[in-house]
Design a protein around this nucleic acid. Structure first.
Lengths: 373, 373
DNA sequence: TTGAAAGCGATACCAT
DNA sequence: ATGGTATCGCTTTCAA
């Protein structure tokens, strides 16, 4: 009862099977299925019946090599589990299917080797574009390899797209859709500074990660603009996870590091940091101010709601595919830069005792290991 | 400078181009590229050089129809933006690539029509399996269509897989990997009941949604097991978003609905509910207890950390592909049911004044519109 | 309106 | 060890 009348299990029927059953030639079947061709009504009916009885669907791969395939687009990201990646992925996917493209995905978990491998596979699949979503470790080797890949893709009529990642060297045939990462961080940090904070703990990312670097640059620039020398001790590296935020705050407190505010490079990191702060008996923002970055949906439900910078992630994804696919010959290497803006909620307060010189207005001078678990 | 010496732009080179350039036949090129065949060193060198110069990659679609393609697997979900979906997607993707498969994705945004369409496309792509991730609206029509699709897929040597979605009628050739949705809800609600709560507001999902239904059944069953008659007024429908949770609590409070605890059908919903509760000046868990479902990572950072039920989402995704791909002929229709368990954190308290009969121990009897924004 | 045959890009069997 | 040729499943001239 799970069997159709014909077509053996595992052996999908071909256009010839349909032709035979309908008593016509394969060409004819192709024509009725194609739609755009004059076919006698009776023939069409017989063919359609055969198609139905055989439950036939044309092999898309065969169509593709014959020149009428469904266009496909590929995107690569670190980990779909990260909310900002998910947002971009959603934008990419929605826009791609809206434009009639299929979507191939791959998570790399930060493994560049794997990323390269996948791109090669995509080249073999003749993907219309390969979209690299999110930041990455920016080394000289990376740039060299990517430039080569961009060339390969371009010369095969495809396209390399960088989404949420900085451009390669000028002249490289690549489409890039970024957001103003550094300005966002600058504005955010300036906000903290304007509230009187002078010792802002920065919970950064991995050393060479493009996103982490840009945000750190913003952090640094904001300090300099205000004429305050950032203490290198306050610049911590780590990764973009909740646990990393939690762990680093825990550590910092234990070490007696002094700070009145923390700027997390990611909302996820901020969430972990917030909990660590709470666990230490510190109140946000009364004792310590805290800000994140990304404006992922749930930060509104943190307590207090987090001040952060909003990034138009979905839009970024949508634009990446639209730009890559709708590219005109006269604008070969588009480079879009979307704006960001800080959204002020309730996790920042003016620093207490701003007029007092030092101690006991800073976290580190209180019992550091105090309420830690 | 972005051009390679040969091979015109947009026209990828074929195996014949390589053969010509190397002065050999196409068969030979195929052989050196294949690897597993004896080829003279000099020939191999010449071929490889040609390949490099032309930046040649064999067309995967052509290979596929010739019988040596990269196997592909497809998965469909509502919206990758939902944390639990993302977790399952990650599991699916990781395991698929581990097993050497390519991954095609599609978001449906809950549009069944779109889902059906995509599955048909996947059949044309000759996907090894089509994995439907997450719950769906369960109607008679849905079951009919899915059964038909399962048949189609099976008779073409492919496979329909339901991941986090209940089985179809017995006999349908489908692989299903579920988790014990109802038991989780039962245990969770029982926990609430055991703390003295008698009026538990249930923030459900869409009426026919399989996941929503299962969780509601657990809610109801737990009540009956304790001999408490659940008040129908306390069973609200809605959707699985943060905003829906926020809105419903806001409404419920305004209407003066009485309850001492709220059971959200999703952590996302719980997050919104939590904020709405806070906004109304209510303390969780002192004034109202709150629980979620899914145990997505960030609920640990909510204040208070949320009591919820843990679902092994990633594992679910991994098993879906492993089972579908590693299926043995003797176990045609596997059905796995993974366990869930409640993880107790700090969002539930024993009901105050449990001995008092009524009023002023319940939310509804306080100024309902009180602290609302 | 329909069929036969020539691709499309690659593989594999059969010779040599 | 290497080349010719059939084949995979479908589309598309070219004839009829």
């Amino acid at each position: 009862m799970t069997r159709k009348s014909s077509g053996d299990l595992g052996s999908r029927s071909t256009i010839r099977d349909v032709a035979a059953r309908a008593g016509v030639s394969a060409s004819t079947v192709s024509r009725v299925l194609g739609g755009e061709y004059p076919v006698s009504t009776s023939t069409r009916t017989r063919v359609m019946r055969a198609v139905r009885e055989l439950d036939y669907v044309a092999d898309a791969r065969a169509k593709a090599i014959a020149g009428v395939g469904t266009p496909t687009l590929a995107f690569v990201l670190d980990d779909i589990t990260g909310p900002s990646f998910a947002l971009m992925a959603h934008g990419v996917e929605r826009e791609a299917t809206r434009l009639g493209h299929l979507c191939l995905v791959c998570s790399t978990d930060g493994d560049t080797e794997h990323e390269l491998e996948f791109i090669e596979t995509m080249r073999a699949q003749r993907a219309a574009a390969v979209i690299l979503v999110g930041g990455t470790a920016d080394t000289a080797e990376y740039r060299g390899r990517m430039a080569r890949i961009a060339d390969s893709l371009a010369s095969a009529g495809s396209r390399l797209v960088l989404c949420g990642r900085p451009p390669l060297d000028p002249g490289t045939p690549v489409t890039v859709i970024e957001y103003d990462n550094e300005s966002g961080a600058y504005a955010l940090c300036a906000h903290l500074l304007s509230q009187g904070h002078r010792r802002v703990l920065f919970l950064g990312g991995k050393p060479h990660h493009t996103t982490a670097q840009a945000r750190e640059r913003g952090y640094l620039a904001a300090h300099r603009a205000r004429g305050v020398e950032p203490d290198p001790e306050l610049c911590l590296t780590g990764d973009f996870t909740r646990d990393s935020g939690h762990r680093r705050i825990h550590q910092a407190l234990k070490q007696g590091l002094e700070f009145t505010a923390v700027m997390a490079s990611t909302d996820m990191v901020a969430a972990g940091a917030l909990t660590a702060l709470h666990e230490a008996g510190l109140n946000v923002p009364d004792d310590v101010s805290l800000v994140g970055y990304d404006d992922i949906p749930f930060v509104r439900d943190l307590h207090p709601p987090l001040t952060t910078v909003h990034v138009p992630y979905e839009e970024l994804g949508r634009l990446a595919v639209r730009t890559a696919l709708g590219r005109t010959p006269d604008a070969p290497n588009e480079h879009l830069l979307l704006g960001t803006h800080v959204v002020v909620r309730d996790s920042v307060a003016a620093v207490r005792g701003q007029l007092l010189p030092d101690a006991n207005t800073r976290v580190g001078s209180q019992d550091p290991a105090g309420g830690l678990t």
